[in-house]
Amino acid sequence: MTLAEPAALSVAASAPPRLHIARRFTARLKASLPAYLLLLPSLVFLALFTYGAMGRVLIDALYQRATPKAPLRFVGLDNIAAVLADSAFTGAVVNNLIYAVGTAIPSIGLALLFALALARTNAVTSALRAALFLPVLIPMVAASALFLFIFLPNVGLLDHYIGRLLPVLPNWLGDPDIALYAIMIITIWKNAGYYMLFFLAGLQAVPEDVMEAAHLDGAGPFMRLRYIILPELKPTFLFVIVIATLNAVTQVDHVFVLTQGGPSNATNLVLFYIYQQAVEHFDVGKASAATLLTLAALMGLTALSFRTMANREGGP
């Protein structure tokens, strides 16, 4: 913002008289025509598959039918009100918040730890990096199918080992108190390696001379981490946090495979709620309204974080 405002002011100050506006506009259009032409293919696909769909959601959210055979009628914001009043939706939002915080923080923490440990490149660290990155390569659906067997009550891999330690074996996916955490463990396992890549890249950008200077000044490893590495990694942190939050809202493959939102809605996340409304309840209006709410929240979040990022880069 600090950068953008003065720029906007200077353009306004040097604006030509009104008469010239039309001519200037055509001239500009001519100049930028090739650019638009080059963008056209992507624009067509974006319009078809992204903006068109979003527009449709906006319209669908405003209509509802009173009884199964009644015609659709305009209901304004009633669908949004109905979604907000639905305890299943508020439950899904709470679950999603727990899920987002509970997956983002541990997976980012682990990622940073891995990156710091494996920052130097040699044969051993390369092998370890590959091993840690492996979960990223497995599709979420396949990973979930594997975990289905790991979490199998009484006879699964996890119970086979943990069973020796605990008196009563937990029903990992069948107990509403545990199921969400079981799902979170999969997400952390899957994403930590991915975020590690960003931190590894971020660590390359830490200036070597500053580190050396700190070393000469007698700063220990902790001091170097606290006062040099972490501040230098701030943009990476911001970026990874945004990605992690988006993932928490957009990845529900494991919920589909493992729990279908159950038991008793304990693992119902917002995206899965939308799916349920749309295809199980056949309620397009409510599904669209929930989608709009989610989109609004996500866009707000993204705008906020990118603004923070722009501030940092533009700052002193």
Binding site: V155, N171, G174, D175, G262
Partner: peptide, 20 residues
């Protein structure tokens, strides 16, 4: 009876393995 909600395949696996 094992506590919690157990899906069908887990029940049959449990039976086959002699756990139930």
């Amino acid at each position: 009876h094992p506590p919690g909600a157990t899906p069908g395949p887990a029940v049959s696996t449990s039976f086959i393995s002699g756990n139930a």
